[in-house]
Design a protein around this nucleic acid. Structure first.
Length: 300
DNA sequence: AGCTTCACCCTGTCCTCTCC
DNA sequence: GGAGAGGACAGGGTGAAGCT
């Protein structure tokens, strides 16, 4: 374990868990990638875990300018140096925890028979090209199911990073910066993003839009068909509409406990997207229906 | 053998941001 | 405010591999 992790935990008065972090080989890089599931494993006791989560969440509040209506805080914009009140802890921690999604590759693969076979091969550090393609298909399918057909660059990066973090044998040794260049390389110097994941996404989008485009051009004016085909794909709700409405009503009247707010916001994400699209509310309407959408960290 | 699918590569366009 | 740079995406071409 490096000094960063030790110093941070000491400053947060969580010295009891330093050994646990040390045992699990948590260094600065993996510390910044911690998701709440991993935190639960590292800090099984509820008390220290809640304190840890509070410290992480607490840091996001000062990053949002309190009285500056002209300046809209963005999820990806780090606060300026003047805003950083905690010198030891970089302000990227809450963003990593709340804005950049986390992926459990093992869990994703366990969800299918083919995935389980690939998992076995990955555990033996041997993967053949056909398995690699199948792996990409499973991951991209998961990606599109959770984030639609055009996930953000950060989301794709997070997936690629989780992949090589979980299975170091898949690391791109020629890519010294991130290590996941084979899997996803963001666009640079007017070149488009590339990598197995990006290319698969592109091919899936092509296939999805091909029949829709040819059909719509026969039946509707060009402008409206263009507008409809360019709309972001919204996946099916994972919970019933009745349950989604229950969650929405609860969220309207409650702001604690925070983890339940987060859970309900996550559960109603698809329902929310469909409601916004169908109802066309203005900003006030959105605020009334989903007040927590404007709570820091909730957009993600 | 012919067809289909897919990875890989390329170009063009749109949009945002920064600089002057 | 305009120009330029850069990111992201769409669309298309090509060749290899798999399928019928």
């Amino acid at each position: 374990m490096d000094d960063f992790v030790c110093d941070t935990l000491t400053q947060w008065q969580l010295t009891d868990v330093i050994d646990r972090f040390k045992d699990e080989g948590i260094d600065e890089e993996s510390f910044l990638l911690l998701d709440e599931g991993t935190i639960s494993q590292l800090i099984p006791k509820a008390g220290p875990r809640l304190k840890f989560l509070k410290k992480c969440r607490g840091l996001i509040e000062p990053a949002v300018p309190p009285t500056s209506p002209d300046v809209q805080p963005t999820a990806t914009t780090p606060p300026s140096m003047e805003d950083q009140t905690a010198p030891v802890v970089p302000a990227m921690i809450p963003q990593t925890l709340h804005i950049i999604p986390q992926f459990d590759i093992r869990q994703i693969l366990t969800g299918s028979t083919e995935g389980k076979l690939i998992l076995g091969s990955l555990d033996e550090d041997v993967i053949i090209p056909s398995q690699r393609k199948c792996l990409v298909r499973i991951l991209v399918s998961h990606l599109m199911e959770k984030f639609g057909e055009s996930p953000t660059s950060e989301t794709k990066k997070a997936l690629a990073a989780a992949l090589i973090h979980g299975f170091p044998s898949l690391k791109d040794e020629s890519d010294s910066s991130s290590g996941f260049g084979y899997w996803f390389t963001p666009g640079r110097n007017r070149r488009p993003a590339t990598g197995f994941l990006e290319e698969r996404l592109r091919n899936v989008r092509k296939r999805m839009r091909k029949p829709a485009r040819s059909q719509s051009t026969q039946q509707t004016p060009p402008q409206s068909s263009e507008a409809s085909t360019r709309r972001t794909f919204i996946p099916e709700c994972t919970i019933s509409e009745e349950r989604a409405i229950q969650c929405k009503e609860w969220l309207k009247h409650n702001s604690q406990p925070l983890n339940q707010v987060e859970q309900y916001m996550q559960d109603t994400a698809v329902y929310r997207a469909k409601s916004l699209r169908e109802n066309g509310w203005d900003i006030q309407g959105i605020r009334q229906e989903f007040p927590h959408l404007f709570t820091p960290g909730m957009v993600s």
